[in-house]
Write a protein that binds this DNA or RNA. Sequence first.
RNA 1: UCCUCAGUAGCUCAACGGUAGAGCAUCCGGCUGUUAACCGGAGGGUUGGGGGUUCGAAUCCCUCCUGAGGAGCCA
Length: 439
Amino acid sequence: MPYNVCFYYEGKNMTQTTIEKIAVSDGQEALICGWVYNKRSSGKIRFLLVRDGTGIIQVVIAKPELMDAFDRLTQESSVKVIGRIRADARAPGGYEMEATSIDIVQIADEYPITLKEHGTAFLMENRHLWLRSQRQWAVLRIRAEVIKASRDFFDGNGFTLIDTPIFTPAACEGTTTLFETQYFDDKAYLTQSGQLYSEATAAAFGKVYCFGPAFRAEKSKTRRHLTEFWMIEPEMAFADLDDTMQLAEDFIHFIIQRVLENRQRELSVLERDIEKLRRVKKPFPRISYTDAVQVLQKEGSKIKWGDDFGSPEETLLSSKYESPVLVHRYPTAVKAFYMKPDPQDPNIALGVDVLAPEGYGEIIGGGQRLDDHALLLKRIEEHQLPKESFTWYLDLRRYGSVPHSGFGMGIERVTAWMCGIDHLRETIAFPRTLYRIYP
RNA sequence: UCCUCAGUAGCUCAACGGUAGAGCAUCCGGCUGUUAACCGGAGGGUUGGGGGUUCGAAUCCCUCCUGAGGAGCCA
């Protein structure tokens, strides 16, 4: 195994074994490098729970010469432990290690996070340590799987990864507040979406996607918002709204299958009801905005045609389905300036939002882009956007303009849904929220 | 920005006008199969800051600070 630690012990060279793959070492001597998760003792026999980032194993200490080392160990002390691996039903995990050597790397100071309950304020203050907990381990491993599945999906379907800039000269969408920063003698803004640039790269590469952080300076203070979040955004030339809806459906379905296949242990640590994920089936329901408004009104909502959906409307609508629902053709007035109007009715835009089930809300927003130069120019003026900044964007409509469409998917929202957890802050290692930028 | 709720031991909480307490963590002692082990003992506090009411305030009132949830906006 490459990149694993070696350790010279009693004339032998031991190579580090990961707890995840401990079964292959059954009956043999192995080296585990990790941290003390917990310890217990019962008279002359002691139990040490060691975690190494891939799992947790119980180490049994019966040799008298190891007792002193055991007694000195504190929670989260770092250790290298050598011992014989054997299956034992009494051990959490099914395998345990009978220690022959304990090499203490560092004795940890009194660890603030105990195995008892803590409040979220305290845990967030200690986010750098909270990451070591089982639950955070499971969530972030699922996040990694969501990202890997996303990239595999696009890479495997003819999309080229072309990343877009973080520093931008102006707003992508005039509506949202941007983080302003100094750019030498000028001002620059942190991007809130790579989409506009992906429209340029789509005209160069056909099918593209970008994956990176997005920044929104909105003073949103809810469990569904971060000021810094990660978004994956495909964009396709020669594609219309229906193509994009099909892509979104296939994409989400693919991610769910991957998570179910490869992250069973993590889902069970989180006690996720995986039946709810299994019940997601293609084709996903599709409903026009206009029909959705009627459904909502029938359910007692006070929404009127022309209003954008708020969080309560999203929850109400999506609760009627077991699969994500694709809501398409919104009023032009509530959507971004670059949305293409429906040729049948200019008051309607060819946009689509995907609402996840179980109240997880909007996970995807996208649609077909305006490809007409004159109309796009008019919209930029109507939205009072700085025209100079959009010269290049308008150029895309002058040189071989084509129907094109795409969407953006929020990694954290999808991860929260996969995990069945109720707050976005746990789906990213170091969340940035309205009132938190530490640690 | 607005609305609601909460700040008491390192952590999670109790005491709700009358001497600030428990569990966990820490330290000491006990136990040969523990499963957030258990049992016994010890140390640990300007009750978020400031002001007010009262004989007396963690408790009631005002104000500020910090945090959480929600609204708007969005992925």
